[in-house]
């Protein structure tokens, strides 16, 4: 059920777009209104989530570290694993964002006969995750050619590198194959590994199916059931220049692709996918480990009235003297 519900949810979304365009002639709804709404929800939603996180107090200094903390001068600090300055925090964050460094440490734990607990290296999740995220990023950047009049040179370079195998016409993009492979792996992993299956929820499967649907519809459009791509670009250029047009004769698979992407964008800020913004807001990653230099004030702290020894002595000096208790000030 946990797998089937999100699967059929995506199937229904596809059918919705197909029915809307083929039977209802709702090209303007699916081609203009929904995409605009989705992008608005995406941007506003991300800002809302980030501001909400920003308003949450961090009561303790809680960076997770795995190296020598800054200490006495003759003890060598591991600046990357245990950063104490903003610069090194940024370096560690950059490696996390670009290369998933913490996932690289993923290990496999098994209870073998004996009973004996063994640990082994497990890089598959890291590799598939890296392939997935980088492919997705490159595909996203590549799509800029549909949204720009006069495509800038870097896009051309990325595109020619991505298609340099020169397989078929239009040329096969390596990232298309990588993305589909990686999504399939990430899905298979959730189904195949009992421990991962146990903790997987519909909210884990839905984005996988959705992204799979987007990739498949895109691949179909490029390599198999082709659409009139010039009309498609007229539509997308209409969108980005705020003069929406619906050119005639765009096949419905394009609207399926566009609708699934719109759903992804609108769903993004309210789902686990928002880790795109959340990774930067993780206190365990974005705080410097300088708790021995800088006192971390808990923003929750109630303003406690402090009665210092000086004040105490002022209050009771006479009585203390009378009782023969030594005082600091006479």
């Amino acid at each position: 059920m946990k797998t089937l519900i999100p699967f059929f949810a995506v199937v229904i979304l596809v059918l919705l777009a197909l029915a809307g365009v083929n039977m209802g002639n709702q090209q303007f709804l699916f081609g203009v209104i929904i995409p605009y709404a989705a992008v608005t929800v995406f941007i506003a939603g991300i800002i809302y989530r980030v501001v909400k996180w920003g308003r949450s107090p961090v009561p303790f200094s809680i960076p997770t570290t795995c190296g020598q903390q800054k200490s006495l001068p003759w003890i060598k600090q591991n600046k990357l694993e245990n950063p104490s300055t903003t610069l090194w925090v940024m370096a560690r964050m950059a490696l996390e964002v670009f290369f998933f460094r913490s996932l690289f440490r993923n290990i496999k734990t098994e209870l073998r006969e004996g009973p004996k607990l063994t640990y082994g290296s497990d890089k598959w999740l890291w590799m598939a995750g890296l392939a997935f995220h980088w492919s997705f990023l490159i595909i996203l950047i590549r799509h800029f050619r549909f949204f720009a009049q006069g495509v800038p040179l870097p896009i051309h370079i990325i595109e020619s590198l991505d298609s340099f195998l020169q397989i078929g016409i239009p040329l096969l993009y390596i990232t298309d194959a990588l993305l589909l492979g990686a999504v399939t792996f990430l899905f298979a992993r959730r189904v195949y590994l009992p421990s991962v299956r146990y903790i997987s929820l519909p909210a884990d499967y839905f984005p996988l199916f959705l992204i799979f649907g987007i990739a498949v519809s895109g691949v179909l459009m490029r390599y198999f059931v082709r659409v009139d791509i010039v009309s498609v670009k007229q539509l997308t250029m209409g969108l980005v220049s705020f003069t929406p047009v619906i050119p005639k004769g765009i096949s419905s698979i394009f609207y399926v692709h566009l609708f699934l992407i719109s759903v992804l964008f609108a769903y993004f800020p309210f789902s686990k996918l928002v880790h795109m913004a959340g990774v930067f807001m993780s206190p365990t990653r974005n705080m410097p480990n300088d708790s021995r230099e800088v006192r971390h004030i808990n923003p929750w702290n109630y303003p406690v009235h402090i009665h210092t020894y000086d004040e105490y002595e002022n209050d009771f000096r006479d009585k203390m003297k009378a009782a023969g208790i030594p005082v600091e000030k006479e």
Binding site: I43, A148, Q234, M237
Partner: peptide, 26 residues
Amino acid sequence: ILIGLAIFFGLATFPFFYNMGKAVAK
């Protein structure tokens, strides 16, 4: 946080700004 959000907003709306004032020739 505001610097981060500004970068995000800039990237997300980049296609709109990139094409501003350019005639879309069919």
